[in-house]
């Protein structure tokens, strides 16, 4: 019996250590990146996030172009993804016969399982030429009065990156919104119909009840877009510039990290500046994810 008690204590100890190890990895994350950024923090100070020049050779490190690129591409992706995801969520939860949506829902969720490098290949060799030949000339001709759609047409840059991000967050936002709408009791819809509402008005009532879950879904989509690396890296052009034109090349925090990190080893200050970018990305996604968890108590990792 004594041996069993010992095993019990040992097992409890080992398993609790495992749990705490995983959690401490997360703390170590923060400490490590912060430690890695110290050189850069002392070198550039607060200016780091306000300077719009990134020139490792001249030792000028400004994060603004990357923060701009990250927010711009993620926001354009959200502007495209929100209405279409909601449309998908409404169609599959309210409009399609349940047999059909039982088949379509998992098919759309599979989109989220395709690795980002595969989306990157597709955006580089399929989407890029389509944008260059059809979409960008069209936008330039009819909406060219906006600075967004002026400039040289190449098929690569912010617009391509935003579209591939839109495609990648579409299944996430639509499936989480769909579940939020499905969770609303159908009586809400029936009540609206009984009061003389149209079917669309009834659906809108359900959506307004599911608002919290839908905003949560959008938050998670935003978080994915902000941290996405490979697909963006292949199509954005990787130039540290700030341009109002969506046709222009640019860079995001994640893309510059992937692009320059392996080559920056020789220069500790350059590496440290990249670490500080990683710290900023980490903090941005941390804030978004905490908002998400506060909004919907649901697991984030797996959709």
């Amino acid at each position: 019996m004594a041996k069993g008690d010992l095993m019990e204590k040992l097992f409890k100890y080992v398993s609790s250590v495992s749990a705490w190890t995983i959690i401490s990895v997360f703390t170590v994350f923060f400490i490590t990146i912060f430690y890695g950024s110290l050189d850069s923090i002392f070198y550039s100070g607060i200016k780091f996030i306000f300077i719009s020049i990134w020139d490792p050779v001249k030792k000028i490190f400004g994060a603004l172009p990357f923060i701009y690129g990250t927010l711009l591409t993620s926001l354009v992706a959200l502007i495209l993804a929100i209405p279409i995801s909601l449309g998908v969520a409404i169609a599959s939860s309210e409009l399609l016969p349940s047999n059909l949506s039982k088949v379509l829902d998992p098919v759309i969720e599979l989109m989220a399982a395709i690795p980002s490098i595969v989306y990157g290949m597709w955006a580089l060799f399929v989407l890029g030429p389509v944008l260059r030949v059809y979409v960008e000339p069209f936008l330039n001709e009819y909406l060219g009065f906006l600075p967004l759609f002026q400039g040289t047409i190449s098929g690569y840059g912010y617009l391509n990156a935003s579209i591939i991000l839109f495609i990648m967050i579409l299944p996430i936002i639509s499936s989480l919104s769909r579940e939020a709408i499905r969770a609303v009791p159908n009586e809400i819809k029936e009540m609206t119909l009984a009061l003389g509402g149209t079917e669309w008005e009834a659906i809108r009532m359900k959506i307004s009840v599911a608002k919290r879950g839908i905003i949560g879904a959008i938050t998670l989509g935003f978080s994915r877009a902000v941290g996405e690396t490979m697909a963006v890296l292949l199509v954005i052009g990787n130039k540290p510039v700030i341009s109002a034109s969506l046709f222009s090349s640019g860079a995001t925090i994640a893309s510059i990290l992937a692009n320059e990190y392996p080559e920056a080893i020789a220069d500790p200050l350059h590496t440290s500046a990249l670490n500080e970018l990683a710290l900023i990305l980490f903090l941005i996604s941390l804030v978004i994810n905490i908002i998400f968890i506060k909004l919907v108590r649901r697991r984030v990792g797996v959709i």
Partner: peptide, 19 residues
Amino acid sequence: ILDVMASTPSIVVGVVSYI
């Protein structure tokens, strides 16, 4: 905490592992 960890950008995990 695990949920937040699961959605940390993978590139950040790369930077941490590098250091």
